[in-house]
Amino acid sequence: MEIQIDSSAAELRRVKLVGRLDSAGAGAVETKFNAATAGAGVDSIADLSGVTFIASLGIRMLVTAARTLAAKEKKLVLVVGEGLVAETLRDGGIDQLVPMVATAAEAEALLASG
């Protein structure tokens, strides 16, 4: 599991995850992911377009960050294309809690619209 963090904008974190977000994958990136998103306390985009598999521990990592950001009146937006990862997130009801869009541009537009 790889994590790439773009902190070039002061008020936005772009985090790209690549690989399998299963128990092992979530365990490998969770600390960095939380620090970059919830810990930074700024609007964040988690790009899951490179994630090939997601399970509940990976979903838990995303929900925890989104909940912490919401408490700070900030948002986490997920970028996830159509496919089995998106299907799993919908099966878990995550699309009802955390915005899911298809592209990074859509995520930035959503955050800009408030």
Binding site: A55, S56, V63, T64, A66, R67, A71, D91, G92, L97
Partner: peptide, 22 residues
């Protein structure tokens, strides 16, 4: 129960629901 908002979401309990769906 499905949480009404992200503020109500709990971190765990998803796994069995995913198994039931699959």
């Amino acid at each position: 129960e499905r949480p009404a908002s992200i503020a109500d979401a709990t971190a765990g309990g998803l796994g069995l629901g995913l198994v039931r769906k699959a």
